[in-house]
Design a binder for these strands. Structure first.
Length: 944
RNA sequence: GCCCUUGUGGCGGAAUUGGUAGACGCGCUGGAUUCAAAAUCCAGUUCCUUCGGGAGUGGGGGUUCGAUUCCCCCCGGGGGUACCA
């Protein structure tokens, strides 16, 4: 019988579904293992061949772990709220729930054809009210909690209120922006609104006016990780900083723990550094400077207190609250003008014009108590309001930006560090000997920093402080398609939780998804929904990362109506053991999940401090992009130029072309034939009149010789709709089968690497599968397996592959597993093996990789039940023993010959035997043998 | 700029602790089969060569009997971040 993947795969897909083979129970005597993929956002484009890469790897690992005796949780679901579905709704009027539903059906069907062992009984989407009820519940938990910095954990806000009632604000150590002090009596005398205003400064989910990233086109606020290069990550629209009243999450309270606990998890170093840079811890001092003619003090933050003798001026952020107060009348006009300028600048402009120095003198002065001089105060764009205190002491001699600023505004520069002892050290390095610095002179920089910190604290003008770059996460989105924030405002505007019995706050139906003109969510139009029990609802919704911050916990107990996850389920599954997904989530999803998880851990809802024990980032599967060069010359005629005719002097636009039109696509010689050109202009009728220029002259469509070849330019890049280079897995599976597709994706290269898709290469894996199938069949196509005992060389082939596959799966090296299978199949074919004792373990070994064909062969071998339930084979070292070993023999480290010696030969015997070899004589004759290095079992090296 | 990561045949890649560089597959070349093609099978395939051998893992240097692997400097690709005081 021929190997027919289509019928085999259909048969076993049905069998698995009917028998619920992959259903997993929360009760088991076996050790648990939780393998998770980052769940997809179901976009309208469906899956392309790049998406399943991680899913295949995790599926192989999940199957392997099951066969190794683990109770494996391996679920899948959908991250279903988000901007694209809503933008689509604005464009087409189709409700996001409708398009999302259609997209999910498409994703599910595509995944079903790839043989994954997901437990679909645990499937959910984040837009299900049953799911987001608990997202809202966690939000309320955040609202109801504060961070006790003394205990270093989050606690119920009721404990803080109790403290206020007994001793007021004194003795409270908590993460907050609160600057009010009050006694217990004062607290009790306050009204509800006033108490609420104070408490919001402590809550883990809180409302405050903050400079946020406002995106006009999307009509919403965005978190820092949703802004890339000054434009929105989704859509690339301009973003500006705007003060707005927003919900935020106090992730900064966890900055130190998020940083410290990176040491405890098995993640790629790259991902750990991304996170630790994002958290951005720095150690320094907070200092107060006296202001000339004002009672207020100017508070600054510096990491270089040692350089204070070089501080010749101060710079405030333009938004700094003191600016208005301390600006002198002389400078008022100039300052106002400068503020107009900075307000007009978009984030994008600010970022792209970093080199440009701008600023304005306020007319005010501060006192540098160490140099005993009055130093001028400026405002400047390069000082950011939301880092540190929004003010700096400028030391032009030891900071590039301060230096540039001082040069432009002609401010004094005093060298305070002699770096001559450290050649190559620049301004950034904390190296050198202090000069021009009074009592610090002659000290090394690190010692000077330490001494200054002491002085500052002694004199009471400041204190040591650790700062983080990490900002609190804005949590409000002025959009429709997200979880409603479950908050009601009473007549005084005091926010109240929606009662648990009223959760979920369901998203009401809507047909106008356009953002409102006043920057509120489209939900604000739904007044009958907004007004509720004499209160008004919060109309903002949660951001995309809300549901994904805890979804991995829901799989543990997906149907639970009474809790986000039951105590027993989370005690059993603990945390995700292996998490596979793309590296693009380092500062977003992976940061927020760690934060939410730690928060839930503090309150006793989860038993572990980290959500994901081990993380692997799979690489991207790239596509070939084919471009046509379109001449940008001014004349009317559209001229395409063959890639071999393109010269440096010309100016060309690169037009991506659908790869199916291109012959030999992906190669250096990729080209459009006359037929390809015909397809191209049918697809892009605006080019119907275009001229195509090759070495042979200029041609128009329909007037080309048969031999006409128009060269295209090939590049490796992203697989994407806009490059018309998407390869759909369905097409590949239809032709070769899911088993072949799975193995080929793994065979392509190491999981973590990005690599280009090459449809041609799949033939190799396809041939392998047929060859392996052929081992079970005789010349006449009859299933034929022998019960004879296997020969030692057959057992050796088998146990070699068993050993290799076991160790390679353990280190996630799936590509070398596939090679090992190919080698074994080639060897067994040469040996003519059809012994049951060899083929049975081989089928088991193959089943995590190619589950359908393994089930089929398992059944044909006469077994009952699924091969996925049997034990994974382990090797026996006895079958691998060799009588003799082929030693490479090198002269001075260069291999010259090989020789076989018995495996049990000793070092001395090997040396003697090697030196006696005839072939060796011509290399050593006339030379002195200085040394012979023998590594038993490996090699022999003769040094002459 | 800073941080991380990566560089091996025409291509994807292998070499797990310093020990036969190029496993496995694609592609290519030749042959068998075929009227022919596809498919299949067999052989070859790092480069140079006077056929002795020589060179070779981005480039240069070093450690070592021996380096793709360790160390130093430089160059290229990918990613992160970016006035963070």
């Amino acid at each position: 019988m021929e190997y027919n993947p289509q019928s085999i795969e259909r048969k076993w897909r049905d069998y698995w579904e009917k028998n619920e083979v992959y259903r997993v129970s929360n009760e088991s005597d076996k050790p648990k293992y939780y393998v998770l993929d980052m769940f997809p956002y179901p976009s309208g484009a469906g899956l392309h061949v790049g998406h399943p890469l991680g899913y295949i790897a995790s599926d192989i690992y999940a199957r392997y772990k099951r066969m190794k005796g683990f109770n494996v949780l391996h679920p899948m679901g959908y991250d279903a709220f988000g901007l694209p579905a809503e933008q689509y709704a604005i464009d087409t009027g189709i409700h996001p729930s409708v398009s999302t539903d259609a997209n999910i059906k498409q994703y599910r069907s595509q995944m079903d054809h790839l043989g994954f062992s997901f437990d679909w009984s645990r499937e959910f989407r984040t837009s299900d009210p049953d799911f987001y009820k608990w997202t809202q519940w966690i939000f309320q938990l955040l609202f109801d909690s504060y961070y006790d910095t003394r205990a270093d954990k989050a606690k119920p806000i009721t404990e803080l209120i109790a403290q206020f009632e007994t001793s007021g604000s004194s003795g409270v150590k908590a993460a907050s922006q609160n600057d009010k002090t009050f006694t217990a009596d004062e607290w009790k005398a306050m009204g509800a609104a006033e108490q609420s205003d104070i408490l919001t400064n402590f809550r883990m989910a809180f409302r405050k006016v903050a400079y946020v990233n406002w995106c006009e086109v999307l009509g919403t606020v965005l978190a820092n990780d949703e802004v890339k290069d000054g434009v929105s990550e989704r859509g690339g629209h301009p973003v500006e900083k705007r003060p707005m009243l927003q919900w935020s999450l106090r992730i900064t309270a966890y900055a130190q723990r998020l940083l410290d606990d990176l040491k405890t998890i098995d993640w790629p170093d790259a991902m750990k550094t991304i996170q630790s840079n994002w958290i951005g811890r720095s150690e320094g001092a907070q200092m107060f400077f006296d202001l000339k003619g004002h009672d207020e003090k100017l508070e600054i933050y510096t990491t270089r207190p040692d350089t204070i003798f070089g501080a010749t001026y101060m710079v405030l952020a333009p938004e700094h609250p003191l600016v208005d107060k301390i600006t002198t009348e002389d400078q008022r006009a100039a300052v106002t003008k400068y503020l107009e300028y900075t307000n007009s600048r978009s984030e994008r402009e600010r970022m792209t014009e970093v080199k440009e120095v701008t600023g304005c003198f306020l007319g005010a002065y501060a006192k540098n108590t160490f140099t005993n001089t009055e130093i001028p105060i400026y405002i400047g764009e390069y000082v950011l309001m939301d880092y540190g205190t929004g003010a700096i002491m400028a030391v032009p001699s030891d900071d590039d930006r301060d230096f540039a600023f001082a040069t432009k505004f002609d401010l004094p520069i005093i060298d305070v560090i002699d770096k001559s002892k450290y050649p190559g050290a620049d301004r950034h390095d904390k190296l050198g000997i202090m000069i021009n610095s009074g009592f610090l002179d002659g000290m090394e920089v690190p010692a000077a920093i330490e001494l200054m910190l002491k002085k500052i604290e002694e004199q009471g003008i400041g204190q040591r402080q650790v700062n983080f770059r990490l900002r609190d996460a804005t949590f409000s989105r002025q959009r429709y398609w997200g979880e409603p924030i479950p908050i009601l405002y009473d007549a005084d505007g005091v926010p109240q939780k929606v009662d648990l019995s009223q959760l979920p706050v369901e998203l009401p139906p809507l047909d106008n998804f356009q953002p409102t003109a006043d920057g509120r969510s489209p939900l604000a139009r739904k007044t009958d929904w907004v007004n509720h029990d004499g209160m008004t609802r919060e109309t903002d919704t949660m951001p995309g990362y809300a549901g994904s911050s805890w979804y991995y916990l829901r799989y543990m107990d997906a149907q639970n109506h009474d809790a986000f996850v039951s105590k027993s389920a989370v005690e059993y599954w603990q945390q995700v053991d292996l998490y596979i997904g793309g590296p693009e989530h380092g500062t977003g999803h992976l940061m927020y999940s760690r934060f939410w998880h730690k928060f839930l851990y503090d309150l006793g809802y989860v038993p572990t401090p980290e959500p994901f024990k081990k993380l692997i980032n799979q690489g991207m599967i790239q596509g070939v992009i084919e471009f046509l060069y379109l001449s940008k010359s001014a004349d009317e005629q559209k001229r395409f130029v063959s890639a071999d005719q393109v010269n440096d002097s010309g100016d060309y636009a690169r037009i991506p072309v659908f790869i199916d039109f291109v012959s030999d696509y992906g190669s250096k010689d990729s080209y459009l034939s006359p037929d390809g050109i015909r397809q191209f202009v049918e697809w892009r009728p605006d080019y119907a009149d275009a001229v195509f220029v090759t070495a042979d002259g200029e041609f128009k469509v329909g007037a080309m010789p048969v031999t006409f070849k128009f060269q295209t330019h090939s590049e490796v890049g992203k697989m994407s709709k806009r490059y018309f280079n998407v390869v759909n897995p369905d097409d590949v599976v239809d032709k070769y089968g899911a088993d072949c597709f799975r193995m080929y994706e793994m065979f392509l290269g190491p999981l973590e690497h990005s690599k280009p898709w090459d449809t041609q290469g799949i033939d190799g894996v396809s041939k392998f599968l047929r060859k392996m199938w052929g081992l079970f069949y005789d010349k006449n196509g009859q299933f034929s397996v022998s019960d004879e005992a296997a020969k030692p060389e057959e057992m050796k082939v088998l146990h070699t592959v068993i050993k290799k596959v076991n160790s390679d799966i353990d280190r996630f090296s799936f590509n070398t597993c596939i090679s090992a299978f190919m080698v074994a199949t080639n060897d067994l074919k040469k040996l003519g093996t059809n012994k049951r004792s060899v083929l049975v373990p081989l089928v088991k070994l193959l089943s995590p990789f190619a589950p359908h064909v393994a089930e089929e062969l398992w059944q044909q071998l006469g077994n009952e039940g699924s091969v996925t339930k049997v034990e994974f084979p382990t090797h026996d070292e006895n079958f691998l023993k060799e009588d003799s070993i082929t030693y490479p023999i090198s002269i001075n480290g260069k291999k010259r010959m090989t020789a076989d010696f018995p495996a049990d030969m000793s070092k001395d015997e090997l040396e003697k035997a090697a030196l006696a070899l005839d072939d060796l004589q011509k290399w050593i004759e006339g030379k002195e043998i200085r040394k012979v290095i023998v590594v038993t079992g490996r090699m022999i090296n003769v040094v002459v």
